[in-house]
Nucleic acid binder design. Structure first.
Lengths: 156, 156
DNA sequence: TAAATACCTAGTAGAATACTGGGTAATTGT
DNA sequence: ACAATTACCCAGTATTCTACTAGGTATTTA
């Protein structure tokens, strides 16, 4: 699991589609203008989204892109992992430096952590994100004033 | 908030320090060998961690690095944002393409999402991560079999 | 004084990001 | 049938970021 601006482009574009779920298809030209990003680059991102069957395209005038599933059935994690390659991991198992197991341990901890992150993002769906939006701004201000609550690790 | 291999190096290195919180200081040379990463690159990462006062270095023989606070008081989010630059955001406020507010909205939604991610990682501490490690592997296997529970958005 | 460490700076190879500039294929309206 | 509009495709490239190389200086210990 990785998170770069590439993932942001993809998620923001998907949100754009989700916001028009009932109306007409959205052209990449529109999204490109909105996000101020090159059309051809967007096409490349959408090729990956298409390959993962997250969107479907329709050609010709009036064509464009639609979500291939309901926004309630597409998670943020799916979108991000469709366009961002997973992180490289130089595995240490069976190497000479792993004397006391420390390195293996801290690597294991990292894997745990990203599992949790992945789980977190796998349970946030485009649809839910949209529906929360109306009251979002006021809520955010309130949250910033009251401080954030502590989230426990769900490991035991 | 961004998440690249750079952040992984930093978190894994910090975990290495945390695992030795009571014993001697850890040299960068050690960490570099463990993680199979160049010493000088690690130094550059640690320059940033030092600037954020997450670690403190001690020179001379027997020197090395220590956490500057308790592992229970250092969050993963702090570490990652110390080394990874924040994502670039081309703000759309007051531009001509923002006709119907859609773009602003999907950008706003993205900001919300990353706020949540940031909040999530801000509440996972090095110390907690370490302490969970003993039973982690068995627990993970169990969790994968039983499936993951749905996490609700904490917005209302 | 010598060794070991942190700490600093400039440059660079390679990878990833993001773009340019061409195409072709399918669909629609005239 | 034809022109316009879109998706879809591909090769190349500029730019940025990652990770490294190769030097150095400052501080501390024995």
């Amino acid at each position: 699991m990785r998170l770069t601006t590439k993932g942001r482009y993809a998620v923001t574009a998907m949100l754009d589609l989700a916001l028009h779920e009932d109306s007409a298809a959205i052209t990449l030209r529109n999204i490109a203008e909105n996000q101020k990003i090159s059309l051809s680059y967007l096409e490349q991102l959408f090729a990956k989204l298409r390959k993962q069957e997250l969107v479907k395209g329709m050609r010709g005038p009036g064509g464009g892109y639609r979500l291939s599933r309901s926004a309630d059935d597409i998670s943020i994690a799916e979108i991000i992992s469709a366009v961002d390659e997973p992180m490289q991991f130089t595995d240490c198992n069976g190497e000479e430096n792993c004397k006391d197991g420390e390195r293996c341990l801290s690597h294991t901890l990292w894997v745990q952590l990203t599992d949790q992150l992945e789980n977190f993002l796998s349970n946030i769906y485009l649809g839910a994100l949209m529906r929360e939006s109306e009251t979002a701004l006021e809520q955010r201000n309130a949250a910033n004033q009251s401080g954030s609550q502590k989230v426990n690790l769900p490991l035991h």
